[in-house]
């Protein structure tokens, strides 16, 4: 579903992403791990067509993002880091705008889509509130609602649980799980329990390179009995 081959991105003299390759199939919930600055966000921005890679390709459903970015963007639901949204709009207005750009021009269909997204993310109580007045948890949910409004075959979520309280984290994880049944999901995080809780695959990147690509079970088996963060620290030590 999502295929990434030898992606490279350089900022100035720093190689942020250095030949990253992997494939995500429908049903996969891929946990994208790595220290801050390892290249997680940059890789995701290249998959979603926000920035152009210096080399390598990213294809979604067989479409090269460099060749037909609009078609790829139509197939991806993307939650950027810290869930940006137009703060002066109400939740309803914002989702209505997203639905319209996503091509739901008939108002009945658009309303149905928006209502569905609101229900799935439990946003009904704040539907008429301006986004800038919402708490962090609600804002994050607005970002979610926006990403899954068009039921995309691919979801790319950049730190979806960042800054949420434990209850909200659990809720978001449950939501991702229900979404993932027949979709390809990539989520980045540096919270290791999260990977155990929802992911069925781990990719660990460090200094812009893929260090590990395996199941959580295999990852645990590297050091039986050890805590995840011990393994993490050993594998990414080069960064420190």
């Amino acid at each position: 579903m999502i295929e990434v081959k030898n992606l490279v991105k350089t900022y100035g003299t720093k190689r942020a992403v250095d030949g990253v390759s992997f494939t995500v199939r429908p049903g996969d919930i891929l946990g994208f791990l790595g220290p801050n600055g390892a290249g997680k966000s940059t890789t995701m921005k290249m998959i979603t067509g926000y920035i152009r890679p210096d080399a390598g390709t990213a294809t979604v459903a067989g479409i090269d993002v460099a060749k037909d970015p609009v078609a790829v963007k139509a197939r991806i639901g993307y939650l950027p880091e810290s869930a940006p949204a137009y703060g002066e709009m109400t939740v309803l207005e914002f989702l209505d705008f997203i639905a319209e750009v996503r091509g739901y021009r008939a108002s009945a269909e658009r309303r149905a889509r928006v209502e569905r997204a609101l229900a799935r993310t439990h946003l009904e109580p704040v539907r008429r509130q301006a986004i800038e007045t919402l708490s962090k948890g609600y804002k994050q949910r607005v970002g979610f609602a926006q990403a899954l409004l068009h039921e995309p075959p691919c979801l790319v979520l950049d730190e979806p649980t960042d800054g949420l309280d434990p209850n909200q984290k659990n809720e978001v994880r449950a939501l991702i799980k229900t979404m993932a049944t027949d979709r390809a999901v990539i989520l980045s995080t540096h919270i290791l329990e999260e990977v155990d809780a929802i992911c069925n695959r781990i990719i660990l990147i460090s200094n812009g390179r893929v260090v590990v690509d395996e199941t959580p079970e295999a990852f645990h088996a590297r050091r039986p009995g050890a805590r995840l963060d011990t393994i993490f620290r050993e594998l990414t030590n080069a960064d420190a």
Binding site: G49, S82, P84
Partner: peptide, 10 residues
Amino acid sequence: GTIELLFTLP
């Protein structure tokens, strides 16, 4: 940061 949202829409 909404520019990232805008330019990842189709």
